[in-house]
């Protein structure tokens, strides 16, 4: 028996909107630790890793580990029917073939339940080792989204370079080139507007902007985004989910020839 009650149901709505276009089907894993998902896009270039820790739920019951295969597009459709202030409860029976999403309005005057069929998914799980990253950039998530969107109007790929001077986002296309440099900025009034660059070694990597733009659909989840870079490693773009966990996107770099 599984029963997860999330007072801030909008978090789950936002998570689904962030990942549904990147991954079609995925297994949600439920354990004492929390509600999690790891899935790759169909071309095995990008990976989504979600964790919602059990402590973040108002009620969390998971009698035994359960893996539930879901079509993320269909799950997103159902969660879209929840109000932004609704409390969302996810329910499933051990060995059952469906999952129920229950939506309660804040004053309990509307209660809806949506039942969705589960599916069998053969998913490959990748082991992601803890790594020391050569450069970690923390910046406003809206700024990161703006940069990716702007650069994708010029080119298909972005070169992200971190040096002592700052972080540079560059692209090149048929009409010309673009370079955007952000310097460290901790002197802002609000911490969510800061840009913080931690660099061990200068690093420069190339990525497909199509994927970066897809990741930025998670912007409503967090005011800041963390971009972790190391040569020879996929970049990690992380959105923290308040008090609960994270949504991380891994993207394999392109090889310059």
């Amino acid at each position: 028996m599984l029963e997860l009650r999330l007072v801030q149901g909008s978090l789950l709505k936002k998570v689904m909107e962030s990942i549904k276009d990147l991954v079609n089907d995925a297994n949600f894993d439920c354990s004492a630790t929390g509600f999690s998902l790891q899935a790759m896009d169909s071309s095995h270039v990008a990976l989504v890793s979600l964790l919602l820790r059990s402590e973040g739920f108002e009620h969390y019951r998971c009698d035994r580990n359960l893996s539930m295969g879901m079509n993320l597009g269909n799950m997103a459709k159902m969660l879209k029917c929840a109000g932004n202030d609704d409390i969302v409860t996810v329910k499933a029976d051990d060995g059952g073939d469906c999952v129920t999403f229950m939506f309660e309005s804040p004053n309990q005057d509307k209660i809806a339940d949506f039942e969705m069929k589960l599916m069998d998914i053969d998913s490959e799980h990748l082991g992601i080792p803890e790594a020391e990253y050569e450069a970690i950039v923390r910046m406003p998530s809206a700024e990161f989204a703006r940069i990716c969107k702007d650069l994708s109007t010029i080119g298909d790929t972005v070169v992200i370079s971190v040096t002592k001077e700052g972080v540079k986002f560059s692209t090149r296309g048929d009409i010309g080139t673009a370079n955007i440099v952000l310097r460290q900025n901790t002197s802002v009034d609000k911490p969510e507007e800061a840009t913080i660059i931690e660099m061990e070694t200068p690093v420069s990597l190339t990525f497909a902007l199509r994927y970066m733009n897809s990741f930025t659909k998670a912007t409503p989840l967090a005011s800041q985004v963390t971009v972790s870079l190391s040569s020879e490693l996929p970049v990690v773009v992380e959105y923290k989910i308040a008090e609960m966990g994270y949504l991380r996107f891994y993207l394999a770099p392109k090889i310059e020839e």
């Binding site: 095995h44 270039v45 799980h125 990748l126 082991g127 996929p234 891994y250 770099p253 392109k254 090889i255």
Partner: peptide
Amino acid sequence: KSSQNRLESFFKPV
């Protein structure tokens, strides 16, 4: 010219 790496080049299946 650039070509796209896949994730399996970095992370091993478990």
